[in-house]
């Protein structure tokens, strides 16, 4: 029975420790600056980090099967740019169509990368490095190096990211979308066979193949899911910032991966949870938002982010080592 307790603590330790860190962090910031935990501030925080939060879920799919995708920043740029261009040239289109276009392009990009990785047997880091160049280059090429500026967008599109009609006038649309997606993915990973198959492939691909799981399909699906969410975020991004530039989303992949890592997703596959990713992304978001409020210069933010990632992964290792050592002590000789 004692052993069982240990196991439980391994699997849940990441989430609990993140919650503790978050509470301490928020408490500290709130103590120093009472403007922090106000509804407006929180809404702002979630609105601005919706993109990272949503994409982190997709990244988790990919990391779960032992893959990685560093092309997401470019995919976001490409899909968002295509959608924006379409909007510029067809101003009568409703916002939903633009969103669908962006999603479709993102999904195709993701699926293509998945194809290259599964059937082409290209290591994920290389395939997505290539994809990163290709999609970024295409984002510039389709736009002929031009921007799409705020005045070229329809009001309906721009307003989407600012208004609250999906949240019945209470909560911002983007927050509603984020919450819906998180609930959907929580159900998907916990209670559907397809979700569990992703874990199975990440845990032991060979066994999964022998037991009849179509690994290639799962892999392509995971990259397509990430592409889908990235496409959605491409539209959200352009709507939120009311412009589309060729270089938008550059470096976003690192933020997204960092959110997953802080949230306890293993880069070796098989381990990670929706709750963990949420907390990881939230931690990174709060760090980004809260530091300026307590007088930390904006120029310190990047360094602090980097430090958090390093400390998080090292703490993880130390915790695991302590658990292992404890288990050994318990062994009778």
């Amino acid at each position: 029975m004692k052993k069982k307790f240990n196991l439980k603590s391994i699997t849940s330790s990441r989430e609990t420790s993140l919650v503790i860190v978050l509470v301490l962090l928020c408490g500290f910031v709130q103590f120093r600056n009472s403007a922090f935990l106000t509804p407006g501030m929180i809404e702002n925080l979630f609105k601005n980090y919706a993109v990272t939060m949503i994409m982190a879920l997709g990244m988790m799919c990919v990391l779960l099967i032992g893959g990685i995708d560093i092309a997401v920043g470019s995919t976001l740029g490409f899909s968002g740019m295509c959608a924006s261009l379409f909007l510029r040239d067809h101003t009568q289109m409703p916002a939903i169509v633009i969103f669908l276009i962006s999603i479709a392009i993102g999904t195709i990009c993701g699926a293509l990368i998945g194809l290259v990785i599964s059937y082409g047997k290209v290591p994920p880091i290389i395939a997505t490095l290539g994809g990163m160049y290709v999609f970024r280059g295409l984002a510039y090429l389709v736009a002929k190096n031009e921007w799409v500026s705020a005045y070229q967008f329809t009001d309906g599109y721009k307003d989407f990211a600012q208004s609250k009609y999906l949240g019945f006038g209470l909560v911002n649309n983007l927050i509603i979308i984020t919450i819906l997606i998180y609930i959907l993915f929580f159900i998907f990973f916990k209670w559907t066979t397809l979700g569990r198959k992703i874990y199975a492939v990440g845990s032991n691909a060979e066994a999964a193949e022998v037991s009849g799981i179509k690994i290639h399909r799962i892999k392509i699906m995971c990259y397509a899911i990430l592409g889908f969410l990235t496409g959605l975020c491409g539209a959200i991004y352009t709507s939120l910032y009311a412009s589309a530039q060729g270089d938008m989303g550059t470096g976003l992949e690192m933020d997204v991966i960092a959110a997953c890592v802080v949230g306890g997703v293993s880069l070796n596959g098989g381990r990670g949870s929706v709750a963990g990713v949420f907390l990881g992304a939230l931690t990174m978001a709060i760090v980004g938002r809260a530091l300026p409020l307590i007088g930390v210069s904006q120029f310190w933010q990047t360094a602090i982010k980097g430090l958090i990632i390093i400390v998080a992964v090292i703490l993880n290792v130390l915790a695991q080592r302590a658990i292992d050592k404890n288990n050994l002590k318990g062994r009778e000789m």
Binding site: I125, A258, T302, G306, I310
Partner: peptide, 21 residues
Amino acid sequence: ELAPMIVTLGTQILFRGIAEI
């Protein structure tokens, strides 16, 4: 136990951040 990808991702952000400071 750590993957080089993740460690150098962390130090990448850290080094860039120190340069910004």
